[in-house]
Amino acid sequence: MTMVDGHDVKEASTLAETAEEVLRRRAESLARETLEEEATHRLALLLFRIAEEWYAVKVADVREIFQEYEITTVPCVPDHILGVVNVRGEILSITDPAKLMRLGAVEVGGSVQPPAIVIVADEVATAMVVDEIGDIAEVPDDAVEPPISIIDRAQAEYIAGSVHVGDLMVGLINIERMLEPVTTGGRH
């Protein structure tokens, strides 16, 4: 098992490296899966921090990570949609998971934008802003446990499970829930 070597604050400049690392790990894990048909499959997780808590998404659900971007606000959207961003001609929504999970808000609009993780499922994508990107951790896929019961109701629906990574307990994000299509305004 790969240990998480701490969760020290990463500089913005290392983001590209992180992304590369994500891809490298993914390639490696894919290669490994085919090479050694092990009994236990391993799950690669990308860790990130919101407020004081650590969360994770499966590396397989991550399309890219970016940091330099400009948010365009869109009227009449729910609170947790910060707006949209232009990624190489593609328009992506920006989701603040902190607002969804009632953990305050990820600070945007400062001198340095918070990192954004683009998560994808069933061709629906959003860029999720987080306070900090952590490491990539590999865990056996049976290490994912049901979410711990003490978490807040508002949070619970966005958490698919919990995983021990080293001495950390991280919440695995329910990305299907997070990617549920957003609709506002009634039919006229």
Binding site: V74, C76, V84, V85, G89, T95, T126, V182, T183
Partner: peptide
Amino acid sequence: PLGSHLKKIDNVAGVTILGAGEV
């Protein structure tokens, strides 16, 4: 279009990108 995630937003039909890249 507003992207795959924002299916239908009240009062907003989509976005456009202007010459300088602003949305």
